[in-house]
Design a protein around this nucleic acid. Sequence first.
DNA 1: TCCATAAGTCTCTATCTGAGACTTAGTCTA
DNA 2: TAGACTAAGTCTCAGATAGAGACTTATGGA
Lengths: 132, 132
Amino acid sequence: MDACTTLGAKFEDWQALGLDEERCPVRNLLDQIGDRWSMLLLAALAGGPKRFSALARAVPDISKRMLTQTLRMLEVSGLVHRDVQPTVPPSVTYSLTPLGRSFAGPLLGLVDWAETHFAAVVEARAQAKKAA
Amino acid sequence: MDACTTLGAKFEDWQALGLDEERCPVRNLLDQIGDRWSMLLLAALAGGPKRFSALARAVPDISKRMLTQTLRMLEVSGLVHRDVQPTVPPSVTYSLTPLGRSFAGPLLGLVDWAETHFAAVVEARAQAKKAA
DNA sequence: TCCATAAGTCTCTATCTGAGACTTAGTCTA
DNA sequence: TAGACTAAGTCTCAGATAGAGACTTATGGA
């Protein structure tokens, strides 16, 4: 059974359970960490702990607001650890928890797909634009 | 080299290239298909072609507006094929293209992670709430 | 003396999302 | 024969969300 068929079968199962946001793991996690900033920040932290300002520099066009918000959410969900040094000015370091590190595998799968098929997507978009 | 280290190394590379939305495959694709509806619709279509109304039923709380919009975007990016039967009322069937099917693998990786670690995330959230 | 720094918060505005009415034309129902 | 229903959307309006940029605090450097 190929991945596509397996995925299709799984989707049927979720549907049977109502695809509820609370109970369906996939719905729930897609709603929370299935946005561009979460994934990008997890990738940024995969290389090792980083401070708030280092993350802001690492992901240039995220606003401070979204950076704070996303990190807090990842912390609450147990993927990221926040370590505050009570100096003045405060020094805050973010790192992946073991749970966060376990996410690197699937995320890497996504990343590899993106790098492999990016050209095809760009080509498809160009075709679509020409046809329009 | 484990996935986490590999991912960290890749992120360094992207950073070196400026993490530009146009040129960086990962940024670009996360921005486009890295939202809950895209992933959910791709999973819904993994099992086979579906009509518009079937998709609307399959993903209960997506609005028609987002359903249309997301499908169009996936079509433009070459992941989904849209087939219109010019009857009245029109009958429109959506299916995955080969490119779309190739995405099932990585997506399945994500899904498996979600199912495996959902309990841990729920537990982490409960702890966080208790601490607050 | 004035600026810069770290890690945010706050406010205001711009953008995005969702809910729900409306469309077309043929078939089904009363 | 009138009215209802269907499919696959589009359109508008209100509400939610994201981003830009000012502000904070205490300290060290030019």
